[in-house]
Nucleic acid binder design. Structure first.
Lengths: 226, 226
DNA sequence: AAATAGGTTAAGAAAAGGTTAAGCGGTGCC
DNA sequence: GGCACCGCTTAACCTTTTCTTAACCTATTT
């Protein structure tokens, strides 16, 4: 059963879609503007987001951008009244997984949701394992804890975010600039130095297993080796 | 997301193709003549090149030849208004991976690009490790490391860049001037001497396998032999 | 033999990174 | 409200790394 975030400002259309999709075994959370959507997104986990492009205040593209900042791989389907090419381009550039022009054909929407889910499913399976083995340590991303024997070390959100990325790139390079863009939204002198500080923390946490190394590749990034 | 170099002198056709392909999750860089194409090619990495045969100054075949000099395995698709047999033969002799006669059917083009990509990269799209075998050594470009047995030698970014080019031209000559243009952006006395220094470093790193030789070809460049 | 190209080593400047601690804005608690 | 605490950012002070340049050779070409 998929959990879907539907962002639609037209109350009646939103309600119709919600009902129809729920008849087809989707669980829908309806938000009527961008802020409500982001609140909901932060509160729980969704499999797909369906965004109306024309929203009051923040438009659908802006909401999509913020969602992608929070979860790069979140599948997004745009709905729009206009079939302008520029809209399509903008949508796909933001990483839209699909794009539908109103009026919405409900059956087609379901087909597209399922297509998107099929596409992302294999990736999601891997990403959903939030437990990582790092040498003798076990790292639980969700609870932000590093376990060695019966010693538990709680780490901060940013430390965990970086360590997760390092784990997902184990043995390969974790590009510094990309990481900064992803976790900080920008890549300047200060964010760079900030990242250095976190790497220093992680090295200290992981210091009890000499087989583990967070290696710097000058000018490129870091590699987790173990 | 594939990165494609599209070389087409007809501005409007180029733009139409670019837009269409970008709608289909390709990232297109458009060049309107051979020189612009080679500049772009040196600046960044592409997955496929699509070349119009009829170009002002340098024709598509000449551009393809130079691209193959820089990266022998670069997939190339030719576009041509003529369906002359001689052109087709010439194209395929230059290592064309496909050949399309104008007017271009966009859907067909996409299908062909995907076919070429499947052919070139059978699996492992995401983590295409750039691993090279050099005699007894293994060279990992991404992490900038030379492995011999359990000995790991970390090398610098420039050293790795040069060694990668040498590997890609193994047994053939790596033109000095082109390399300088590519890695330094210019080719003067100092950059030349700088390159000499890096070659000297590489020879030292690779010194433990006497079968490997970085041979100088006076006034031309270097050849990696092993 | 002169001129040019290349080989190697070392010195020096600039940039990047490592680490520690202070600053600073939130949050929660009394 | 004030206070302590926490996490993140800045600052400060080093060390390391990288690349260029210089210097002093040798090799190759003409």
């Amino acid at each position: 059963m998929y959990h879907i975030l539907l962002v639609e400002d037209d109350i009646s259309l939103g309600y119709v879609l919600k009902e129809y999709l729920e008849l087809h075994h989707f669980h829908i959370e309806l938000a009527k503007d961008g802020d409500a959507a982001l609140l909901a997104f932060n509160r729980s986990h969704f499999d797909v987001c369906i965004l109306d492009v024309m929203l009051p205040k923040k438009d659908g593209f802006a909401v999509a951008y913020e969602i992608k900042q929070l979860n790069e791989s979140m599948p997004i389907i745009f709905l729009t009244a206009r079939s302008l090419k520029i809209d399509k381009l903008k949508g796909f550039n933001l990483g839209a997984d699909d794009y539908m022009v109103k009026p919405v054909d409900e059956e087609e929407l379901i087909a597209r949701i399922q297509a998107v889910m099929r596409r992302v499913a294999p990736v999601d399976k891997e990403r959903d394992a939030h437990l990582f083995m790092i040498g003798k340590y076990v790292f639980d991303f969700d609870t932000q804890v590093l376990i060695l024997g019966d010693n538990k070390q709680f780490i901060t959100t940013k430390e965990a975010a970086i360590l997760k990325l390092l784990c997902e790139h184990k043995g390969r390079i974790l590009d510094r600039k990309q990481t900064l863009k992803r976790l900080w939204g920008e890549s300047d002198y200060f964010t760079r130095r900030s990242m250095d500080v976190f790497i220093s923390h992680l090295r200290k946490y992981l210091g009890d297993d000499p087989a583990i190394e967070i290696k710097n590749v000058h000018g490129k990034g870091y590699v987790l080796q173990c």
